[in-house]
Design a protein around this nucleic acid. Structure first.
Lengths: 175, 175
DNA sequence: GAATAATATGAGCCCGCGCTCACATATTCG
DNA sequence: CGAATATGTGAGCGCGGGCTCATATTATTC
């Protein structure tokens, strides 16, 4: 499996400096998205901020959409990684339910704190972008589903709140 | 007070057909924003969709920003109107607390159902637009504040939930 | 070393954007 | 009616956007 999805990466970097170039471009994209918003995130601006030429950018990303999608993909992967890590921790050290839930909430907070501004921009300001954003949304949904499952499984131990609503609060309130 | 804020309306329409033109433009703007997003909402596209020339558009709106701001202003006014109407209803017919809250929630649902997609686009996809969006946000905040006040005043009658969180749920869950 | 592949460059193409302006048409009023 | 005013038109300007390509530079291989 290549580092970048085949549809979006024009060339896979084979030297260190190439990988560094790709990283610079992704960092610059994230920074501009967060500070200036999607509208101001032109490919020329990204290249300038990254300290590379516009040509280099298009050697590794077939389009602006591909660039943003790659960034979203990366962001989603990081989120998914955090999620799985948390699940394993919680399962291996079963404590009281309160502790588990608390632990879980903490992980969700961390998950959303990883890069909240970037998360926000990716979720809100991108109407028609396909795969990358989709991945982010999937991770979001998975996290919500897991919280819901937890609550469902232990609902007898709480006040009879609406599980759907409670899930929604836990997931969104930390953003 | 003119129908459009002075800074944004180039000419105030004095004939019926002019008012109709302005309405067409605002309807077209809302429609494109909702269906295609802000990026695809070019002034040329709006004029075409509205069935008027680009020149006419710029006779009533000094800029694209002014156009969107006017639409946001209109949206906010409608929301504020609904809010006040609901307050009066609730005060004039005092019933049980449950009924009042239920009534109130219904109103909030209506408020956000008025045009939820438009609301979403106005709130999320417009980073730097000044007055109009500000008005929308103010109405949103006012509505949240009122709900919070209701809950605070009657908190003894409910389970001791966190009032902040409860407010957040009520306001956001209906979107 | 030379040959080949990998990477980097940036001037500039094309296109659609926001927006203007010279002009055409409709409406109101004396 | 004609004059004055209000409204409507759309070709096109200037500009910045996404993006390409001929070329230059650097790394690898033999």
């Amino acid at each position: 499996m290549p580092p970048q999805p085949a549809e979006f990466a024009r060339k896979t970097p084979k030297q260190d400096r190439a990988q560094h170039t790709v990283d610079s471009i992704l960092r610059a994209t994230a920074h501009i998205l967060k500070t200036k918003g999607f509208a101001a995130c032109s490919t020329n601006a990204v290249a300038k901020k990254a300290g590379v030429s516009i040509g280099s950018l298009y050697q590794y990303f077939t389009s602006k959409e591909a660039l943003v999608a790659a960034l979203a993909e990366e962001h989603a992967q990081e989120g998914y990684r955090l999620l799985l890590e948390t699940i394993r921790d919680a399962v291996e050290q079963p404590r009281s339910i309160q502790e588990l839930v608390r632990h879980y909430i903490g992980a969700l907070v961390r998950l959303h704190e990883d890069d909240p501004e970037l998360h926000r921009v990716l979720m809100e300001q991108l109407p028609g972008i396909r795969s990358g954003v989709k991945a982010v949304q999937q991770v979001s949904n998975q996290s919500a589903a897991l919280v819901r499952a937890w609550l469902e499984a232990h609902r007898s131990q709480f006040r009879p709140l609406d599980v759907e609503v409670a899930t929604y609060v836990l997931v969104t309130a930390v953003e």
